[in-house]
Amino acid sequence: MFTQGKATPRNAEALRLVGVRKVHGTAEQPVNALDGVSLTLASGTFTAVMGPSGSGKSTLLQCAAGLDRPTAGTVHVDGAELTAGTETELTKFRRQRIGFVFQQFNLLPMLTVYQNVTLPLRLAGRKVDRRHCRAVLERVGLGQRLDHRPAELSGGQQQRVAIARTLVTSPSVIFADEPTGALDTRSARDVLVLLREAVHTFGQTVVMVTHDPVAASYAGSVLFLADGQLVGELRNPTAEAVAERMTHLADEVERRRVLAGA
């Protein structure tokens, strides 16, 4: 069973990973996707996660969000240990307490904007507050598009629907995996502003995996991964500072790999 902590007040701990390892491959040839990652994020924060290809970014998000179970270590969201429950309990917890925004919008094409946004509430058996849902859609600039279907919207508008769908459930943590990867520059900026507003206005906690230094600059801090380990953090980032750190990190990773193969 999940060990549920007390209700999380503002600025309390939203996410905690302790010694998280994820090993793929065989016993003879193991691949450490995550190698003992520990971190704590406070509620109401916006954190970007970056690293070279193969650094473990997506694996970190999947384990932190309860989409995959770590080989070792524990994951806690809002005081609940995700690594302790059954699959049924974990699914229920994700529906109630965790939000997702992906590069692909994952909207159901036969449903309207409003129906897509309220779907998670219905799946979780929660009451749909129509006034709240409409207010969220107004906030993301889609108040006049409630009856439209995804095919009638631009990519940026579809991603805003996906963000609204997450916001109406008031999750403990929103995990965003390359949320601007399929968008043009202007739409990407609008989505990043919305995610930042979700933190500052709605008090949400956002963890975003991205490869884009400009996207990362919208976060309050950036965590850097390399070879499955946390290797640095940058607070109040600028796109230039993030790009410089990534260049040095990529060079260092390449140097290690060359030495390891020598």
Rank of each mutant, 00 (worst) to 15 (best):
Y218N: 08
V31T: 15
R134M: 13
R131T: 12
L234P: 05
V75H: 02
T185R: 13
S170F: 10
H248Y: 08
C133N: 15
E152T: 05
A215H: 10
A33S: 11
F202D: 15
S43I: 02
K92P: 00
L234K: 06
R165V: 03
V77G: 07
T74S: 11
G228T: 08
T166E: 10
R134W: 04
Q157F: 02
A7R: 14
E28Y: 11
S221A: 15
M1I: 14
T40Q: 12
P237G: 09
D227T: 00
S187G: 00
A250W: 11
G220Y: 06
H211Q: 11
T86F: 08
P150C: 00
V173H: 12
Q115K: 09
V23H: 07
A182L: 10
P213D: 12
T47Y: 11
S58G: 05
L15R: 06
R160S: 05
G51I: 02
R131E: 15
E254A: 14
P179S: 11
M110Q: 12
G66Y: 06
A80Q: 03
A162K: 01
V173Q: 09
F105I: 12
N106Y: 12
V77N: 03
K6A: 15
A84Q: 13
E197V: 01
V191G: 00
A64V: 03
R149Y: 14
Y218G: 12
A262W: 09
H200F: 12
T86R: 10
R122N: 00
G51P: 10
S170E: 14
E244H: 14
G44C: 07
L67M: 12
A65R: 11
S217Q: 09
A215V: 12
A262N: 04
V199S: 07
V136A: 06
T118R: 05
R69T: 12
Q4I: 14
K6D: 14
L167Q: 00
N11Y: 13
G143M: 10
A12L: 11
R126V: 05
Q144H: 14
T59E: 05
G99C: 04
A135N: 02
S38T: 13
R21Q: 13
V128W: 10
R131M: 03
D227H: 07
H76W: 15
Q104S: 15
E244I: 09
G79S: 04
A135V: 00
Q4W: 13
A33K: 00
D147L: 03
S53R: 01
A65H: 04
T74V: 01
G181P: 09
F100S: 00
V207I: 14
G44Q: 09
L108D: 01
S53P: 07
G156S: 03
L17M: 10
Q204C: 02
H200A: 15
T180A: 05
